[in-house]
Design a protein around this nucleic acid. Sequence first.
DNA 1: CCTTGACCTTCCAGTCATTGGAAGCCTTAT
DNA 2: ATAAGGCTTCCAATGACTGGAAGGTCAAGG
Lengths: 139, 139
Amino acid sequence: MTIGDAAKASGVNAKLIRYYESIGLIPAAGRTAAGYRVYSSSDVNILRFVKRARTLGFSIERIQILVGLWQDRSRSSAEVKRVALDHVAELEAKIAELRAMSDTLKHLARACHGDERPDCPILRDLEEGGGRCCHEAPP
Amino acid sequence: MTIGDAAKASGVNAKLIRYYESIGLIPAAGRTAAGYRVYSSSDVNILRFVKRARTLGFSIERIQILVGLWQDRSRSSAEVKRVALDHVAELEAKIAELRAMSDTLKHLARACHGDERPDCPILRDLEEGGGRCCHEAPP
DNA sequence: CCTTGACCTTCCAGTCATTGGAAGCCTTAT
DNA sequence: ATAAGGCTTCCAATGACTGGAAGGTCAAGG
């Protein structure tokens, strides 16, 4: 299989396969006499594993660890679970951060007339730093 | 005010202030005879505006627009609201994406014993591409 | 045999919003 | 006079790709 075939079979872009090889995420592929990379079906399996892990938002660094555990027959499921739960914790933290941003903005947007007049609570919040809110009593 | 004073007053790092100037997000500061940047309190206000907008997750590109609308006395609040709601839509899309990742992983982690044995549903999912799930009947 | 087109190769640059460092000038205090 | 600290510029790196240029290789068709 050439890199194009491996790309089709794995769903990972040929360019990205070369990149993954260059950073050491996947082992260096064999070569033909002309220098073309050659892939086996087990190489494609690794690529698919990586692709699925990226879909679940794992960083390249953690995927390195997961691939290592995957290949290690004497791994403990506890190790895998810990890597996964560390990632879940990061995802939840990010979600909470975005949730707070979105809720604040939705609140401000609801208070904004959205007409031709210039008066706008959204800009007022940005101007004042969002320190206080319409629902809070002054100190 | 020097750039260090403006940084303290606005909460924006001096390095970042220079960067914002270099990309044209904020107007170029005046200079002393020796070439030091000089800031006024209205410059600090712009920096605070930018900082607050970044805290709400707006991209630099959208902040350019928001700063423009903020300075424009003949703006309509509808324009501001549209920029804000576009951003909210992006935030919500990102949240949904991360939510799906997190839920899938939490589900897999719950099914994982997390002990010394190598058997692990998380790795099985990554191997198989997550195409099917333990709750689904085979075709 | 030659050309065309579709592959493959490497290397370099750009994305986004910062952050870090190096080398050198300016100001203030001792 | 000198030391400390702040200021200046420019270059490089981050993560995870993506794009393009310049050139080598391969199979089919004329």
